[in-house]
Design a protein around this nucleic acid. Sequence first.
DNA 1: GATGAATGAGCGTTCATTCAT
DNA 2: CATGAATGAACGCTCATTCAT
Lengths: 216, 216, 216, 216
Amino acid sequence: MGILERKQREFARRERDILDAALNLFDSDDWLSVTVEQIANAAEIGKGTIYKHFPSKEAIYARLTLDFYGALLSHLRSADTEQGSMETFRQVARFALRYHLDHAKFRRVVQYCKRGDFKNRAAPELLQGFAKLDALFDEFSTALIQRGIDEGVFADRPVEQVRYGLHATFEGAIYTLWEGYCWGKDIETDAFVEASVEFMLAGLRAVPEMEPEVTG
Amino acid sequence: MGILERKQREFARRERDILDAALNLFDSDDWLSVTVEQIANAAEIGKGTIYKHFPSKEAIYARLTLDFYGALLSHLRSADTEQGSMETFRQVARFALRYHLDHAKFRRVVQYCKRGDFKNRAAPELLQGFAKLDALFDEFSTALIQRGIDEGVFADRPVEQVRYGLHATFEGAIYTLWEGYCWGKDIETDAFVEASVEFMLAGLRAVPEMEPEVTG
Amino acid sequence: MGILERKQREFARRERDILDAALNLFDSDDWLSVTVEQIANAAEIGKGTIYKHFPSKEAIYARLTLDFYGALLSHLRSADTEQGSMETFRQVARFALRYHLDHAKFRRVVQYCKRGDFKNRAAPELLQGFAKLDALFDEFSTALIQRGIDEGVFADRPVEQVRYGLHATFEGAIYTLWEGYCWGKDIETDAFVEASVEFMLAGLRAVPEMEPEVTG
Amino acid sequence: MGILERKQREFARRERDILDAALNLFDSDDWLSVTVEQIANAAEIGKGTIYKHFPSKEAIYARLTLDFYGALLSHLRSADTEQGSMETFRQVARFALRYHLDHAKFRRVVQYCKRGDFKNRAAPELLQGFAKLDALFDEFSTALIQRGIDEGVFADRPVEQVRYGLHATFEGAIYTLWEGYCWGKDIETDAFVEASVEFMLAGLRAVPEMEPEVTG
DNA sequence: GATGAATGAGCGTTCATTCAT
DNA sequence: CATGAATGAACGCTCATTCAT
């Protein structure tokens, strides 16, 4: 019915209001001291209404984080793969890093949700949500790397092995971009993105064992 | 006098007791809920005595973090530099990563002290301590890289630029080693250390702009 | 009309559903934390509908209590009075105690409604309901005792006086039966009922002032 | 040392202040809505200080109740037992009832602590405290009754059995005295105490099985 | 008449820090 | 110098009741 539909839409809209309000309030180093009441006020609803949508404050954190990664994944999957695997990887990596930069408001809450103490407290269903995303990212990146190896563009090593270094660089790049700070200075973000992407590609192409002779 | 000296030694010893007690208590996901009283009990002193040594609880965090990085730096500086710059870098990087693994008890407090909200609250003198360490690490790593470039082992690029990718990989490697978890699975630490080190070296050697032709 | 009648019947039926649902949910030590929503769910109606039948949650408590005592009274009044006054009293008392045991689900809410804080908050009309029941029980028990005195079976004292002890034993028996616990042990209910009834009869028969000589 | 002793005395004194303040505030039908802050204010200490003495608000309830029963027991044990067992029982029972009247401020909290939901939440050590008191009261009353039986003053029945009715009357008397209300009217307390005590004695003396013939 | 989304007041408890002894 | 009792601000969450549809 039209009435039911409208109610559902209003309900969904309020949920967005809550998440948006929270996200904006969380964009500060003091974010952890933002109270549920402040979120409710910012969303222009009552405090109790928040709990119609989320069972706890931490569930809001989790939801923002899941939304963040879910949107990233969906963008990545719709990436253009017509080009060579190197260029494809470059664009995917670049996009992922820029996505983090463009959604920097999420950074504190996303990092919080990765912490062990958060996961210890989190409801099992939330943890499942995170695990599912992990698996999807895993699958996506594995395919990307394997394609490069198959095409002879990346060094022919077990994917398991090459992903270690790749993961390190990627995680560190995000961390540093979000921190905005490196080697005692503010970073120049565009340059940082490009340098990190090329670093990843260099690692993917490199033949690890014999490299001194090859390069030297 | 002997008396004065003994008193000073006792005082210093108590400080160590506090820091050791805190460090052990902090080795848990619940570390943030460790109270000053618990630390005092574990150190077998009164709660008030802690405040003779540290102006605040967060000062203990800062001190542990400074100690952690200070010790790392001093170890790195005493590294053997007799070998070629590539091998020297490899050993330095490997040592730094292993050092983080070997001092995993520090991981939560060290990560906490990097957070923006901590730095906002921190006393200026503490921030100076961190800045000084940053500068020393900067100086040390710059020298290492520059030597490799000068010897023709690393690609000839502005140090500023190459350090971006290097920093990303290094930070991400530490983060992941401490997390113990990557791509949805527990990591195999030895392999992870080696993969990360070689990834860094690959990035340092690679000629970034023309690589498609070179490798393909 | 048939339609009107059916509506009334449905309405009354819903009220029963609410009361039954509430009563079942109240049969637990946690009964005070049962929410209106839980009652509504158990009664398979909407939360708002409850308020079409009862002006407040406490009105449900009051209604259950009034129903409980009302049913007891109506049973007592229809008791067989053909036997002697002692046996009649014995049967009435036994029935009243067993009635409490058989309706133990009511115990928490009935006791709650006796509390002073409840009565302070209660609407005047509810208090009138309780007062009316009190008066009817008063009348009923007075008649029963007076009959025993008139027949020379109970000691000849002012009814006012004898009822004090009787009331104490009766109230205490109910309390203890509902509690199920006495002198540090679980009670054996049948024995407890009989012992209490005989205790009441002993008190009713006893000549208070001179008894040492009489019995000794 | 004098210093240590003084500290202990001050500490104990504060505990008394808290308990006294709480007791006074609890002497109202609204007692459950008395907040910890109100108690702290009334005791002229900080809210946190309360928690140095009691782990929770409910622990204050429990403590008051234990104090109440502990003092009663110690009074009862020091009762004069020189007289005959009937007179001794009469005086003990009378004292116990009057004690409840004289400490009516305790009545709400004492009744609260008997409730099942309270006991479900209570710490095991508290429950042990209650169980211990139960056992001591049990022992005391058993001895009193047995003495009456041995002296031929009370009917010769198993103590277990006679205590059922006695317990009912006693519990009910206290409940009613505290309520102040019986058969729809305010009670006259002195008369109620005497009537209840004589009721208990009548029950103790009565020969249960054959009484119709004996009395009629 | 039935519904259920929205409301918001209310409170126990923790713990870093101080300071009198 | 060492101690530990005292402090009090701060906050997530519940749930009875209302009322627009």
